[in-house]
Design a protein around this nucleic acid. Structure first.
Length: 218
DNA sequence: AAGCTATTCAACCGCTATAGC
DNA sequence: TGCTATAGCGGTTGAATAGCT
């Protein structure tokens, strides 16, 4: 038995999207909004799988996407975030407005890995960062492919070059806002609930953080 | 100019998480 | 509470392109 396929594969296009397909998708989403990806292709007159439409929209057609090369700031940010979060590309992408998880993943695998190797960092950890075991452990119990034996930078370096950074709280759970809404400064209150962006030492408040915590500090 | 190799990145696949019944 | 459908994530693939011989 098993689950039915996500779409009728025999009647769907695959491979590169044509301009016409792009336009159909854009027009449909502009009119009806995102969501209900399964029924979208039929409604939009596309012979595509819903997953494919979603991916195309999120990774390529979304109007708020920032196309073009990554900046040095973005590079460093990705490295920092990856050393903490591992291959949680969607979380990393969440800190980089206009960038998608797929884009960042590709960029990591092509540019940054090499950059770190050239720097002599390679499989070493990023200096100054402590990696909490819980943060690098796989969130899912999915078994890794046999070929994927290369641990993340965080995993690789965590046992050797670890330096203490005791206030780094990687508990990303969401809690109800306190009534005071008072931003917590570094060192205050044991640095709990501090913005991750701030902890990472973002060079620019406009780069990644939209939580207003930094703005309230500067 | 032609052939080969390396690199890039859009797209696909398989899986888990979660919402809704 | 369990089942099903759907959304979303991360790893992988493969076509297109660039660079080299």
């Amino acid at each position: 038995m098993g689950r039915s396929p996500c779409c009728e594969k025999a009647h769907t296009n695959k491979g590169a999207w044509t301009k016409e397909e792009d336009e159909r998708l854009i027009t449909y989403i502009k009119t009806h909004g995102e969501g209900c990806w399964r029924s979208l292709p039929k409604a939009a007159g596309l012979l595509r799988c819903g997953k494919s439409c979603r991916l195309r929209w999120i990774n390529y057609l979304r109007p708020d996407l920032k196309r073009g090369n990554f900046t040095e700031e973005e590079d460093e940010l990705i490295i920092k975030l990856h050393s903490i979060l591992g291959n949680k590309w969607s979380l990393i992408a969440g800190q980089l407005p206009g960038r998608t998880d797929n884009e960042i993943k590709n960029y990591w695998n092509t540019h940054i890995k090499r950059k770190l190797i050239n720097r002599g960092i390679g499989t070493q950890s990023t200096p100054g960062l402590v990696v909490h075991p819980a943060a690098t452990a796989p969130a899912k119990t999915r078994s890794m492919p046999a070929t994927n034996t290369e641990p993340s930078i965080a995993e690789k370096g965590s046992h050797k070059t670890r330096k203490e950074l005791p206030d780094l709280n990687l508990d990303l759970t969401i809690s109800l806002p306190s009534t005071s809404q008072k931003p917590i400064t570094a060192g205050e209150n044991g640095s709990q609930n501090m913005c991750l962006c701030y902890r990472l030492g973002f060079p620019s408040i406009t780069l990644a953080c939209s939580c207003n915590m930094l703005q309230s500090r500067y």
